[in-house]
Write a protein that binds this DNA or RNA. Structure first.
Lengths: 223, 223
DNA sequence: GAGTGGTCTAGACCACGAG
DNA sequence: TCGTGGTCTAGACCACTCA
């Protein structure tokens, strides 16, 4: 027994996939759609919220509901994202001092001088994903620091979560669309943390891939 | 300006974290809570749905809303989950033939005989996570096949998504709680796929960790 | 100011669970 | 049968965007 909102969402989803509703296009207003489908506005809005959680539409207060442009799906592989000519990256550099979670992450004392690189990736005008990279400021030139050699080990911790309100607005995604959160900590031969990267990749446009060789670690135990 | 539903959700969340509402406990009925907070039932339900999406409460139709037991947080590391004495695994073995997505995944012809191992992990009475493992049936004994040696390379593909309706009901999670989806494909020296594992790990109880050594691949490029 | 989405109300009726 | 949550209605009022 399909609920009304799912029926409506299925219909609109179909229109998006078949191209009857094109990327960037504005949907009819909510009262209009509610009348078309012969449902109340809360029910119609409920249907739209399903599509929003899937990343198919974007709601803009005061303007309307818009079909999202499908964004390129990136693969994060062993510390790097697949480069893509369509994607434009802006980097903002900030100096700050270690506090909160950064202290255990970088294994530095409180208030240690750090450099933050804020990577914001756009595809055209649309925000795609973001990353924050922290480096102890005494490690040398800030210019291409993240390309340095001397990294002996990297640990990638991957989890799924909902975006913070700031992330949701920066990336213009629904707060109900999950993100892949990747924390990568790189250490040198002495065990010192050289860099910590916090990536936020919306789940509709990113996946991570890790390749492991050597038999020793490849035996599974899925308990 | 905080909305009513967030205010209510914050209050209930606080009661859960401080232990005023204990794990397994039933919340007052929705009309009761709506009266206590002096809001309409849709608004109260909206607040509860926020907690549900966070995995804090479980709604059971006809019975009530219950505070979830916090489940152990597992780490998936290099092909295995951290073993834990509290967790009980049941395995169901099924014989089937390759079809659909399994064909390209295992790189086998259609209708190739396969063995499926369905791993269902429980913590006490509560489902925790699940995995499906597929092995070509001609590879030998099905008993401990996934412990075999001979694996030369493993590829872990990790994404975040919402659970399918089946997964949501099996794991008793909200369909709005994201899961980490891990697909691990293991190949032997000849490039033949020896095993494909599909893990479904609810985001509130799992993360993945990958450790990379060697400088060569450790230089980041976060574009 | 006109039109849009955001929030909320006060109900109605249905479906499920347990006694 | 009774109490529970699930769905839906037909509005009201507020906040935002743009002309």
């Amino acid at each position: 027994m399909p609920s009304l909102r799912h029926t409506i969402a299925d219909d609109l989803r179909g229109q998006i996939f078949t191209g009857r509703l094109k990327a960037g296009e504005r949907l009819p207003s909510e009262p209009r759609l509610a009348a078309d489908y012969k449902v109340s506005t809360p029910t119609l809005r409920n249907a739209l919220s399903l599509l929003q959680a899937e990343g198919l539409i974007e709601k803009i207060h005061g303007k309307g509901n818009f079909v999202r442009h499908p964004l390129r799906r990136l693969t994060y592989t062993g510390g790097r994202l697949t480069p893509d000519a369509d994607l434009h990256v802006t980097i903002r550099t900030t100096h700050l001092r270690a506090r909160g979670d950064l202290i255990p992450l970088l294994k530095v004392p409180s208030r240690t001088p750090l450099t933050e690189f804020l990577y914001l990736t756009h595809q055209g005008q649309r925000p795609h994903s973001l990353a924050r990279i922290y480096v102890p400021r005494d490690l040398g030139s800030a210019q291409l620091l993240w390309r340095r050699s001397g990294v002996e080990e990297s640990r990638d911790k991957i989890s799924a979560r909902r975006p913070t309100p700031e992330e949701a607005s920066t990336l213009r995604i629904s707060s109900t669309l999950a993100v892949l959160s990747i924390t990568r900590v790189s250490t040198d031969t002495t065990g010192r943390v050289v860099e910590a990267a916090l990536l936020v990749l919306p789940s509709d446009r990113a996946e991570a891939l890790f390749v492991t060789h050597n038999t020793a670690n490849a035996r599974g135990q899925y308990g």
